[in-house]
Amino acid sequence: MDGANMNAQVGITNPAIIGADVCHLNLHKTFGIPHGGGGPGIGPIGVAKHLVPYLPGHPVIKSSGEKAITAVAAAPWGSASVLTITHAYIKMLGAEGLTDVTKIAILNANYLASTLKPYFGILYTGTNGRVGHEMIIECRNFKAEADITEADIAKRLMDYGFHAPTLSFPVHGTLMVEPTESESLQELNRFVEAMTSIYKEIQEIKDGKADKEDNVLKNAPHTATHVCGDDWPHAYARSKAAYPLKWIEDNKFWPASARVDDAYGDRNLMCSCAPIDEYRKSLYKFDELSE
């Protein structure tokens, strides 16, 4: 079993019951190790009895039996130091807490599903109409109605101060949302409000009230330099670009870049700081003074 979604199983079911012989565990998801901006990720494996003799060994520190497969990583116990985080997570939650966590993860997901449902289709549900710990939100209809893609929604969410849900996985043209148990009702509601507001912005395009090209979604995210700039060529107000909801004023996050052009960078591959250095020099006069 791929244990990527183990967080929806802990204390409620387990891979062995389901019939799996092997399962890897993403300790950086289910068991509290942070993502670190793209790693470390830790993936221990659990195995049923008949597979125990084959668990990986190590050439320097003998940690397993004769039938062990050879090492899969440089260190005998992998990324040992961060295992302390998972240890803390389990010991501080205990049996009951671990199970509660799973339940609240499923509860929060179902709350989001039910509150978003009037605006966004929920792609897959179980036989009882419920979702597990995450859900897939349909966005393909917006493409047909208003030429808005899931990527436009993702970028617009940044203007509201949110990181986008997962794009186009596992189904193209969708967003996958997982709130986790750690989010409170007020935070879930903020997200729902942002999503609902974006839904309305899409409707404005659909209804012809907003331009099909020059609209808050296509131009998202809006940077501070752009919104404060002397040149504002858009039909909509600056405040609509940057502060579409009142509470954003409390804790505005300004995206550092406007929408990036992936294709340009791939055609002109630059992967060191040198071009930035050049660029900065053209911006700051004092660099000339120092040279």
Partner: peptide, 21 residues
């Protein structure tokens, strides 16, 4: 938690865990 007999802590990423399995 997994219902299994034993665990290897060696794989140092999710993908490494899949591979090891």
């Amino acid at each position: 938690i997994t219902g299994f007999a034993d665990i290897s802590l060696q794989p140092n990423s999710g993908a490494a865990g899949e591979y090891a399995g």
